[in-house]
Amino acid sequence: MSAVIKPKTDPILSVINIEVIYDHVILVLKGVSLEVLDGQIVALLGANGAGKTTTLKAISNLLRAERGEVTKGMILYRGERIDRSSPAELVKRGICQVMEGRHCFQHLTVEENLLTGAYTRGYIASGVREELEKVYRYFPRLKERRHAQSGYTSGGEQQMTAIGRALMARPRMILLDEPSMGLAPQLVEEIFEIVRELNRKEGVSFLLAEQNTNIALRYADYGYILENGRVVMDGEGRELAENEDVKEFYLGFSSAGRRSFRDVKSYRRRKRWL
């Protein structure tokens, strides 16, 4: 067992006031800033359509394939601007995205899926086999299923394949989009446990977008809440979980007992984030 890596204080990733426009007209992010310190797990929370996925895709530069564009602000990775780098360059430099809905290569076997993750590392280099074994150590289930066609494996196995595939590139930072989507609660727990382990043992930083605020805040060191393309709140994971407004809006319970629907509505109107 390797020693626990203490979070250092310098940011591995800084997103500074970015604005994202799709198709030249649709303004999706209206000035989002956030920071991930080296060795941290940071959660990006918010409802459907708040801009979580767009933020991640802006960082990994997958936006351009969807006609999106960062029009303002900048993104720094270890102090260097990366908003003009291609996704392949970013993977080489250590930022990998695991997309929402897994996106495994359905007709490839589990092992072939993992191997594609090492594409940027060139021709079957010495390290790739070892890397594969390491992924299998974290996800023993993938080893059992290594020769199965990915499209026929379960949702949990596909999520593991997707994370494992990203690990094959030896990333320093993983952008994990909605890992809990469509999975049974037990599996979600399992996946998050592995994320924490990867974070502690391998020193991989995570920025994860989640709708499941409850579990995300249990594992995250820090959290940002997005609403309508803006960061409306941020804080330490525990602090956010205790916050009354977060409880009210995202954790689905309130401290003041049951309220009528009408009360909630007016409450929401008053407490609009700005």
């Binding site: 990994s60 997958l62 394939a65 291609s86 996704p87 392949a88 970013l90 993977v91 080489k92 990998c96 995205q97 695991v98 997309m99 996106h103 495994c104 290569f105 359905q106 007709h107 490839l108 072939e112 899926n113 594609t116 993750g117 594409y119 940027t120 595939r165 990203a166 590139a169």
Partner: peptide
């Protein structure tokens, strides 16, 4: 084959 299966995912794992 990966690209044939899923363009987006191929981009995400760094296949140009």
């Amino acid at each position: 084959r990966a690209v044939a299966d899923d363009h987006q995912a191929a981009l995400a794992v760094g296949i140009p």
